[in-house]
Write a protein that binds this DNA or RNA. Structure first.
Length: 563
RNA sequence: GUCCGCGUAGUUCAGCAGGAUAGAACGUCACCCUCCUAAGGUGAAUGUCGGAGGUUCGAAUCCUCUCGCGGAUACCA
């Protein structure tokens, strides 16, 4: 990466300056340099701040910078020093190489090996099979599926998993609710208890139950039916799991009991008030937790402990769980169980996401359990998969997401996803037009294409870029530079998104790249009678298209050729 | 009470391993199509970075306190 390159340039020069006794009292370079992009572009494209050497050298930062610069021989870039900053500005040769690299690597551009093949299990959504997903589930689905792509792209061996909570009391309630709906359909009058699932979706389920001949137990049928609907929606939402892991299998395989025994052997359990307790306060929890209730049934935690053990035993080195912020109190007991069973809880990483607010008609609809539930299905039908995914992804998970349904539905520049996809379509359009026959607007005569299809393919395949700058046109020149620098930033963005588990950085990047491209487009004619410039600029447009579709692939949204 | 997240432009949010005049989008106002998608672009206005202390050559960023908003504090899942 270019930033690393300049860090090394400065580091090397600083060491040279130091051994030549040009850095005052400094005896060696221990500081870690960071390369960043200056806020003010007049300073340059990249800058390294050397002020941190001031303490060792006992020199003023500007003097240090000047001393270091003496030992740099710039190639394809220029240097200027302002205060304690060494600023670098790239020249054309350097920028051309960026475009060439993109054309050469294509879909591999930006790929890196941070993970070194580490086996990561990422578990998300994991809803109860008792009804349709609500909007909050959409956030975790979008986040998990996109993060999985990012992690794969950065060298992790990723396995995506959905935990089906199909063993607890809620399944009895589901069975009971379905039974009541079936009776209702047959004309019986029924009494609805407070805790029944009264959603309309069970009416349809009841119809299917009757159609299927009423052979199965209510609970089994409803579970399967709900899970089927959930899976269909996930697939539509570009969220593809490698595994749907059923909680009941943990009981069937006796894994839950084995876990409890293991914890008992470890001396972490005790009985009190007729219940079996796990002493999680031996770790970081603030109170002990019940594993087996007074009535003899297990808590949710008990099976979950077995589940996490199961994941480690399947060979995953690192577990990532995506949970809603309302589960944050659950983390200490989960980590306690992992440590108590002899695994390392540092290998469990929990990503807590804040909840989603729905804004409709300018009004917030809080997503409470008792309020009217807006389902993910309804939302996707209304605004589309791409817009829903992008919207769910574009904010840091640390902040409560305001999902403005009306705005996400709009097909104009107010809607960031359309803005970004439009840039891609525009690239495609230019590349198409380049080799099409054209008409002279004045005479109506047919003119040959700007470039032959074979020539265009040749440019893209050889990854050799001719000149793409017009130095006489200052606005176009600057826009071109800016665009190429942005393309290079893709690598840094991917790295950040992976390290910080933050796909929203990619949304932001996509917006910035689209913006820079539209700006470039406005000041630069790509297709012109200057053959060399046309070729160079087509290469640039192709590389923009390539990087945009690369971002979309990580976000799992579509890259339209036409809009 | 304790724990977690958030308080930055009219609005939604970036920036928070401290660094050069605090950014973007939307909204507002004024402009730009004979020619590759105007679903686009250019320009203008807009801020006591919730408040108070502290650390530092330097704080939106780190520490302490404080105020406000949301969430969690189950023998529910």
């Amino acid at each position: 990466m270019i930033k690393d390159f300049f860090v090394n340039v400065v580091k090397g020069a600083a060491e040279a300056a130091c051994s030549n006794k040009k850095l005052g009292a400094a005896e060696k370079i221990s500081a870690n340099f960071v390369c960043e992009t200056p806020k003010n572009p007049e300073f340059g494209d990249y800058s390294v701040n050397v002020s941190s050497l001031a303490r060792d050298a006992k020199m003023a930062p500007p003097m240090i910078a000047n001393a270091i610069v003496e030992f740099i021989k710039p190639e394809n870039y220029s240097i200027n020093v302002v205060a304690g900053f060494i600023n670098f500005k790239l020249e054309e040769g350097f920028l051309k190489k960026v475009v060439e690299e993109i054309l050469e690597k294509r879909e591999e551009y930006g790929k890196m090996n941070l993970g070194k093949g580490k086996k990561v299990n990422i578990e998300y959504v994991s809803a109860n099979p008792t009804g349709p997903f609500h909007i909050g589930h959409g956030r975790w689905a979008a986040l998990g599926s996109s993060l999985a792509e990012v992690l794969k792209f950065t060298g992790y061996d990723v396995y995506q998993e959905f935990y089906i909570n199909d063993a607890g009391n809620q399944i009895n309630k589901l069975a009971m609710s379905l039974e009541l709906r079936v009776k209702e359909l047959k004309g019986e009058t029924v009494e609805w208890p407070e805790d029944a699932y009264k959603g309309d979706y069970l009416i349809d389920c009841a119809k299917r139950y009757i159609e299927a001949g009423e052979k199965e137990a209510y609970g089994e049928f409803a579970k399967k039916d709900m899970l089927r609907l959930q899976k269909e929606l996930l697939e539509k939402f570009e969220t593809n799991f490698d595994c749907f892991f059923s909680e009941t299998t943990l009981y069937k395989n006796n894994e839950v009991e084995k876990c409890v025994k293991a914890l008992e052997t470890a001396g972490k359990l005790y009985e009190k008030d007729g219940a079996l307790w796990f002493r999680t306060t031996d770790y970081t929890d603030d109170q002990d937790r019940v594993l087996r209730k007074k009535d003899g049934s297990n808590t949710y935690l008990t099976a979950d402990i077995a589940y996490h053990k199961n994941k480690f035993d399947r060979g995953f080195e690192h577990l990532i769980n995506i949970w809603g912020a309302d589960h944050h109190g659950y983390i200490p007991r989960m980590k306690a169980s992992i440590d108590a069973l002899g695994y390392d809880s540092n290998n469990l990483e929990v990503l807590l996401g804040q909840l989603v607010n729905i804004i409709q008609n300018g009004e917030a609809v809080r997503m409470g359990k008792r309020k009217k539930m807006v389902t993910l299905d309804e939302l996707v039908d209304e605004v589309g998969v791409d817009a829903t995914r992008f919207w769910m992804l574009m904010r840091s998970i640390d902040t409560t997401l305001d999902f403005d349904v009306d705005l996400a539905k709009q097909k104009n520049d107010q809607n960031p996803v359309f803005y970004v996809q439009y840039a891609h379509a525009r690239c495609c359009s230019i590349l198409r037009k380049a080799s099409e026959d054209r008409l002279d607007t004045e005479t109506g005569e047919k003119l040959p294409p700007f470039i032959q299809k074979e020539e265009l393919d040749e440019i893209l395949n050889s990854a050799k870029v001719s000149n793409l700058f017009d130095k006489d046109d200052e606005k176009s020149y600057e826009a071109t530079r800016k665009l190429i620098l942005r393309l290079e930033e893709f690598k840094t963005t991917v790295e950040g998104a992976s390290r910080m588990r933050a796909p929203y950085l990619l949304c932001k990047y996509a917006s910035n790249l689209a913006y820079d491209f539209h700006h470039f487009y406005n000041f630069t004619r790509v297709l012109s009678d200057d053959k060399e410039l046309t070729k160079g600029r087509l290469a640039l447009v192709a590389s923009v298209k390539n990087v945009l579709s690369g971002v979309f692939r990580l976000l799992k949204i579509s890259a339209p050729e036409k809009m």
